[in-house]
Design a protein around this nucleic acid. Structure first.
Length: 552
RNA sequence: GCCCCCAUCGUCUAGUGGCCCAGGAUAUCAGGUUCUCAUCCUGAAGACAGGGGUUCGAGUCCCCUUGGGGGUACCA
């Protein structure tokens, strides 16, 4: 393994939230820096003004911190090689661009996007590689200026030296590309901003990055970058390209798939109430969520293309979990960052010896570039959930409480009203949950108003009305005894239930389930005595009375 | 179309020529524990894509086929 310290970087583009694939790239870079005692630099690649998404930089920084991946240099922390926003480095790129033009290594190109598209079409039709053919003679600076003045787009293209290029990749080995595949690519766009290739090469050199670890989608770019480095007189860093992460079904992990999945689930939910017309269904959902009925109709018709508050509201109302794609999604769903990190560290890397459960510190110790695999991985949410359960079971109460607070911070769970001690109690008695969201769903009814409790027909039938209202009779038996229960603790309640069960020669379940339904409206809740203690005597009794009086 | 990369249980992977009739995890199935849902415990089933080589010996090396993926932008 590399022992010399390396300078690595993670260079996200602020076009949205931090994607799990990006998080894995960030993690591996961070691990490499920590493992070798080097530096982890964060750089924001905001050179595409049209795709820039407001606030996404702040969100990316926040999610990186949440994951526990602090950077040594970059936004908000500074460093000797800044600025770390490419949008603040335009003069730097211009300088190097001019240098290349003067040296005859780059030239102005005058084609319009339409002309380029036509050239592409032709090449495709004639089954030739789609490459740009260098004009001969080259446009002169005067012609470029004239074109610009006339309002025509002018770009700058780098003159590829020609000849085959061999790139040595630390994961893939030697990758050879034929010279004729490598065309003269744009380094400066017609808006005067640099392209990714150019800004990236210039910044990596100026920021003294000596190891580039990035996604395999960049593999083909590498020969271009190497040629650029040589023309600019820069050293070529070491390269390593990571396999890509896909959804469980092999599709690309994107918001698009999340929306598609939502569509399927929505249809399933819709079919469950087949007796309701589409219009009524949409209206009901609209009434409950505050989302315009027209919008709900669009969702039903599968017309939505973005995940927005409306979609989230409808999903929340109908109990549809949106597929997590971004780090933020996992955060909101109630995963522990430790579990997420542990899980994604195993996507394309393995420490060997059947090791899986690792703290981040252990991962740093074990990390080795030589053990990174070449095959693309699929993101198995089930396994992530299992990891999360394990982590939650092993994590200290303090840390768990802290993480739970973060979860509650992002949602609108009624549990937000619970005090710190109650939250901890809940965490303890519900141990074994997959995610905080699961815990939330299980226990949230304890924190809503009594009047907000609705009784699930299925649960009522099974636990209250069955066998000639057996469950209701049980509630009637229990009510006076609960009224005189004092003090109201888990121990006294348990003793009380045991006595009743012994007297009637029944199992605890026969007494617990009717009470569970009476106080929560469902057949699922935290353990019954904890549920009653959390609810308190007064509220427990009120809810049981309410249930009895609501008896059909 | 053209170029590049990849290929072990459903999924993530261990395996660097004999330790492998292939190990772990997760998922699945079957039992058990349990006041619900979970958790937890025990067990079962489950893979070297196909075909050629090389070798005394191949999951491990080479070639072909097939399959998957990436790129082919004035996106990054």
């Amino acid at each position: 393994m590399t022992q010399e310290p390396v300078r690595v970087r993670f260079a996200p583009s602020p076009t949205g939230y931090l994607h799990v694939g990006g998080a894995r790239t960030a993690l591996f870079n961070w691990l490499l820096a920590r493992r070798t005692g080097g530096q982890f630099v964060l750089r924001i690649e905001d050179t595409d003004q049209s795709r820039h998404v407001e606030d996404s930089t702040a969100k990316i920084l926040d999610d990186l911190r949440w994951l526990g991946l602090p950077w040594d240099e970059g936004p908000e922390v500074g460093g000797d090689h800044g600025p770390y926003f490419q949008s603040q480095r335009l003069d730097v790129y211009n300088r190097y661009c001019e240098q290349l033009i003067e040296a005859g290594r780059a030239y102005y190109a005058l084609e319009t996007p339409q002309e380029l598209a036509a050239m592409r079409e032709t090449a495709l039709r004639e089954k030739r590689p789609v490459v740009y053919h260098r004009p001969d003679p080259l446009p002169t600076p005067d012609q470029a200026r004239a074109a610009k003045d006339a309002g025509r787009p002018v770009t700058v293209r780098f003159m590829m030296p020609g000849g085959d290029v061999v790139v040595t990749d630390e994961i893939l080995g030697e990758v050879r590309l034929a010279g004729q595949e490598l065309d003269d690519f744009v380094i400066q766009k017609s808006d005067g901003w640099p392209t990714y290739h150019f800004a990236c090469v210039v910044d990596d050199a100026l920021m003294k990055i000596d190891f580039v670890l990035r996604g395999q989608e960049h593999l083909i770019n590498t020969p271009k970058h190497v040629a650029l480095q040589s023309a600019l007189g820069f050293d070529t860093p070491r390269y390593a390209h990571l396999p890509i992460i896909f959804n469980a079904d092999g599709s690309k992990m994107s918001k698009r798939t999340a929306i598609k999945e939502f569509g399927h689930r929505l249809l399933q939910v819709r079919q469950r109430s087949a007796d309701v017309s589409d219009e009524d269904f949409a209206r009901n959902v609209a009434d409950a969520t505050g989302v315009p009925a027209d919008t709900v109709g669009e969702l039903l018709a599968g017309k939505h293309t973005v995940i927005d508050p409306a979609l989230q509201a409808v999903a929340g109302h109908l109990g549809i979990d949106l597929l997590e794609i971004n780090v933020h999604d996992f955060r909101v769903s109630g995963y522990l960052p430790e579990a997420l990190i542990n899980f994604i560290s195993l996507l394309g890397w393995s420490p060997g010896e059947d090791r899986e459960q690792m703290t981040i510190d252990e991962t740093v110790e074990l990390f080795d570039i030589a053990r990174i695999g070449k095959t693309n991985a699929r993101f198995d949410r089930g396994k992530l959930a299992a990891f999360n359960t394990d982590w939650a079971n092993r994590t200290s109460q303090d840390r768990l409480a802290e993480a739970f607070d973060d979860y509650l911070h992002w949602g609108d769970s009624p549990m937000r009203s619970a005090d710190a001690a109650t939250r901890r109690h809940l965490l303890k008695v519900c141990a074994g949950f997959r995610t905080f969201k699961e815990l939330d769903v299980k226990g949230r009814n304890l924190f809503v108003d009594d009047e907000a409790i609705t009784y699930e027909p299925k649960a009522v039938k099974k636990n209250l009305t069955r066998n000639d209202d057996q469950g209701y009779h049980m509630l009637e038996t229990l009510l006076p005894r609960l009224e005189s229960c004092d003090p109201w603790t888990g121990e006294t309640l348990e003793k009380l239930f045991e006595q009743v069960c012994a007297e009637q020669d029944i199992k605890l379940g026969n007494a617990a389930q009717p009470v569970r339904v009476a106080v929560t409206g469902t057949s699922i809740s935290p353990p019954i005595f904890d549920t009653l203690v959390l609810l308190g005597k007064e509220q427990t009794l009120a809810r049981i009375r309410r249930c009895l009086s609501a008896r059909a």
